[in-house]
Design a protein around this nucleic acid. Structure first.
Length: 583
RNA sequence: GGGGUCGUAGUUAAGCCUGGUUAUAACGCCGGCCUGUCACGCCGGAGGCCGCGAGUUCAAUUCUCGUCGACCCCGCCA
């Protein structure tokens, strides 16, 4: 239909006769002369309707409106001096239309495509129009590039791409499943996969050795700016590997993607590492944002014999006292009150501030501290005049977590984060287990197939001290992916189920197929999975995962475009032998 | 499940705190003029269930409660 794309035209094309096809982006009707910007997937070019060049075309051009779909034939000409538009790549030329055809008309759109400040609900209802905008097209063109890079890189490393089922079995542990009724088996349900975890391990038992898949995953949990109920993972599994092997090949993949999407090299290669314990101690997070310092200091030793009630009580019951120092910011009383309120909103029992002025320490609690405590605190924290110390006291894990979040608040509020930096980090040596208050038992921190760093047969010590052979990749404080070396021997996996308090018959019922497969020559194996959407979002510098998903869901999980989820015909339910219990 | 922000022409916002006139602006849309614009310009015009439902009041876009929807966060997300 066409022989040339709009956005590709340059000075070299002058004098060519071209046929273009695209949408009318903007028109500027001067009566005698009509300009329009014709847009296709490659960009825009100015087309000119002149009565002197083509009277008939010019007459008809008056009826053209925004977003009309045109096929245009004309000659490429250099723009007259002083009328070039250097803001667009095609700005040195224009196309004089000799003839055109309206391929389709267009109603007045519900919003203007060049409106940058659009309500997201309207964009989502008319997502196909939203996606017509060049900046949205750019995102999805980059995303498309990322698929290809991923496939090229991994296949060149000897990986095989294999698909796994979407209709699979619901398993306990982990996120809530989306379930799908089985018509052929009334009252039975499939589950959509939270990840292809078990299948990729089984493929290792099949002997493929290196597997990957760009896999859709489903988790029926509440949404966030960076979480959708269905999302895409780069899912990877390898046989006969150690943690170092997995990290090496995947660091290569991430670097390749980073360079392609950001157009520059990552700042630090190989990516630095940090243990989970260090991350929690210094940054109060298992995904620390290293673009700024502001590390947490443990002041518990300073206050072991304190007379200050809050600290004394906390320390006696096994808690910790932790501090952050905001350097060189003379905060007003109001700033400090806001900080205290913020800490409360984060869930803190209280935040203590101490301001060091030229006259000494200012704080509501300073009179309860003795000289020894004050001087020790000052030397440990390196406090200088103009600094503010923030202190919280609570159970060790809780205070770490709270200080971690408070650190992010301070970083954001006081502009400590250098947004021009990119910081990758491997977090390693996670705990294998964590206590779940709700279920009153230990659950797997990563997943139940993760292996411990050391074999555990007959383990009877401190569950929380067991380290896992697991690793996460963190980028600017966001988790991009994580993985582990798995248990490849039945007895090790059975031991894990024992630690998780999953009974033998239950394990056999739910995971029997895996345990059996492990008994039939399962190789040592491990892998990783990256959030593909998140990678695109982070590397393109976007703040919402919805911006990198073509047709995303709202926070309540609905699609404003199609109206999903929706009621279904009663007949459909009957066929599935399903009765709902609410109207 | 909980906390917060928001909802007014097609769109983006102002007005609401402190209730009372024809609900304001920009962009878009429609008509007219315009041969070098590129966010074209100039003149004129149309366009509103102030999300929905109750309540308070002589009177509600404005105050109160509820509800629906969008967004951010906590819980949740192996």
């Amino acid at each position: 239909m066409r022989d040339t794309y709009c956005g590709t035209l340059r000075k070299d094309d002058v004098a060519r006769t071209v046929t273009l096809a695209g949408w009318v982006f903007r028109r500027r009707d001067h009566g005698g002369l009509i300009f329009a910007d014709l847009r296709d997937v490659t960009g825009i070019v100015q087309i000119v309707f002149s009565p002197e060049i083509a009277k008939e075309a010019h007459d008809r051009a008056g009826d053209i409106r925004g977003e009309y779909v045109l096929k245009v034939t004309g000659s490429v000409r250099k723009r007259p001096v002083e009328t070039e538009n250097l803001n667009i790549p095609t700005g040195e030329i224009e196309v004089y239309v000799s003839d055109f055809e309206v391929l389709n008309t267009c109603k007045v759109l519900p919003f203007q495509l060049d409106d940058e400040d659009m309500n997201e609900a309207v964009r989502l209802k008319y997502r196909y129009l939203d996606m017509r905008r060049p900046e949205m097209q750019r995102i999805f063109i980059e995303r498309s590039k990322a698929y290809k890079i991923t496939r090229d890189y991994l296949t060149s490393q000897g990986f095989y791409e294999i698909e796994t089922p979407l209709l699979t079995r619901s398993t306990p542990e982990g996120a809530r499943d989306f379930i799908v009724p089985s018509r052929l088996n009334p009252s039975m349900f499939y589950a959509l996969p939270q990840s292809p975890q078990l299948f990729k391990q089984l493929l290792m038992m099949s002997g493929f050795e290196k597997y990957f898949q760009i896999a859709r995953c489903f988790r029926d949990e509440d949404l966030r700016a960076d979480r959708q109920p269905e999302f895409t993972q780069i899912d990877i599994e390898m046989s006969f590997v150690t943690r170092e092997d997995v990290i090496e090949v995947n660091e290569g993949l991430i670097i390749t993607l980073y360079e392609a999407l950001k157009g520059k090299k990552p700042p630090e290669v190989p990516f630095p590492r940090m243990t989970f314990a260090d991350a929690m101690d210094k940054y109060g997070s298992d995904k620390p944002d290293l673009r700024f310092g502001l590390t947490i200091t443990d002041l518990t030793p300073v206050f072991l014999n304190t007379e200050l009630g809050v600290f004394k009580k906390t320390i006696e019951s096994g808690g910790s006292v932790k501090a952050l120092v905001l350097k060189g910011r003379t905060l007003s009383r109001k700033d400090l009150d806001v900080a205290v309120d913020t800490a409360k909103e984060l869930g803190s029992g209280g935040l203590i501030w101490i301001r060091k002025d030229a006259d000494g320490l200012q704080s509501p609690i300073v009179k309860f501290l003795n000289d020894e405590e004050k001087s020790q605190m000052i030397s440990r924290l390196g406090v200088e005049p103009g600094d503010v110390v923030f202190i919280m006291a609570d159970k060790p894990q809780k205070v770490s977590d709270l200080m971690g979040r408070f650190r992010l608040y301070l970083g954001e509020k006081y502009g400590l984060i250098d947004k021009s930096l990119d910081k990758f980090l491997w977090v390693i040596d996670f705990p294998l287990l964590e206590y779940n208050e709700e279920e009153k038992r230990y659950v797997a921190r990563h997943h139940p197939f993760t292996s411990p760093k050391e074999r555990l047969l007959g383990f009877d010590g401190d569950y929380e001290a067991i380290l896992a052979n697991a690793y996460d990749l963190v980028f600017n404080g966001v988790e991009l992916g994580g993985g582990s070396i798995r248990n490849h021997r039945t007895e090790d996996q059975a031991e894990m189920f024992r630690l998780l308090n999953i009974k033998e018959d239950e394990a056999a019922d739910k995971f029997g197929f895996l345990l059996e497969a492990l008994e039939m020559g399962a190789p040592p194996h491990g892998g990783i999975a990256f959030g593909f959407d998140r990678i695109i979002m982070m590397f393109l510098g976007l703040s919402s995962i919805r911006d990198v998903i073509a047709f995303p869901k709202t926070q309540k999980g609905s699609c404003l475009l199609t109206g999903a989820p929706s009621r279904v015909a009663h007949r459909q339910l009957t066929e599935l032998k399903i009765r709902t219990i609410v109207d």
